[in-house]
Amino acid sequence: MKNLLLVAYLDIRESLRSKWFYVYAVVFGGLMGLFFISGITDSVVMGFTGLSRLLLVFIQVTIIILPIFILITTVKSISADRESNILEYMLSFPISLRDYYWGKFLGRFVTVFVPVIFALIIGVAWGALKGAAIPWAMVLLYSALIFSLCIVFLGIAFFISTTVKSHDMALGIAFMTWIILLAFIDVALIGLMMQNRISDGVIITIAMLNPMEAFRIGAIALFDPELTVIGPVAYYLLDSLGHTLLMLYAVLYPIVLGMVFALLGYTLFRRKDLL
């Protein structure tokens, strides 16, 4: 356990020395600043006001930016160490493969999760200073959704990083993964429905297997429990799961999927040629 925490600490220190971390932090912190300057917390859009309006806009940004940032910055975590011979150097110490792998996973989770949550806390604090009512249940559920989104894309990124040896190949696969998942939120599935070759139930099921779609539906359900903005699909989801189970699915499914990918990555990392 001590070695695992040491590897996590070293990974955090390495991330703090990298430019990507500060770009990542500035993106979310800067967006919060822009939201405040533009007066989003004081506006009324489709019935949403104050912090509810701020969270609604923040969610729309998070679903696009967070996955690609996690994938691009994390897929090089192990593959880059392998290419630069840092992995060989680290394994020359009395550190097990388990401690190295999960230490890197824990360290990278801290560096991708903390800036987003910190930006969210700033938003809540600003709203409190402005005298706005704080929707604590909504804030906690959104924090859980961000947690699950970080876990699933960290798991996918570590799986990619252990599967390929080339850093450039890992980046290419990560970018393609993001494009495919993003396309299957709306574009590809709408095309399938228009062609009417697959039943609606099957299409909706496929869509909900996409962790980005699960996050999106869960985020929408925070503000619109009846899911009226997604049209007739809402009736299928609410009749099949109900609001409570739908929220549990949106939070727990990405976590389980991310850990499955992380475990598969660890299995490959332990069995294949490391160098």
Rank of each mutant, 00 (worst) to 15 (best):
R82W: 03
K104D: 00
I95E: 00
R98Y: 15
K76Q: 06
T111S: 14
V75H: 11
W102E: 04
R98S: 12
V110D: 03
D99N: 13
L87R: 08
V61E: 08
L71M: 10
G107R: 06
T62Y: 00
E88K: 13
S77C: 07
F69P: 03
F109Q: 01
I63N: 01
D81V: 01
I95Y: 08
I70N: 00
T62G: 00
T111A: 13
V114M: 06
T62V: 04
G107C: 06
S96A: 05
V116I: 11
I121A: 11
I95Q: 00
I121Y: 02
V116Y: 01
V116T: 11
I78K: 01
E83K: 08
R108V: 06
R98E: 14
I95S: 04
E83H: 03
K76V: 13
F105N: 01
P115H: 13
T74D: 06
L91D: 05
V61K: 04
V112F: 09
D81P: 01
I86L: 15
L87W: 08
I78W: 05
I63H: 01
F109D: 09
V61T: 14
E83V: 08
Y100C: 07
Y100D: 00
V116F: 02
I78R: 05
I78S: 03
T74K: 04
V114K: 05
R108H: 09
G107K: 09
L87Y: 14
R98H: 12
R82S: 12
L97R: 15
F109W: 11
I86V: 15
K76Y: 09
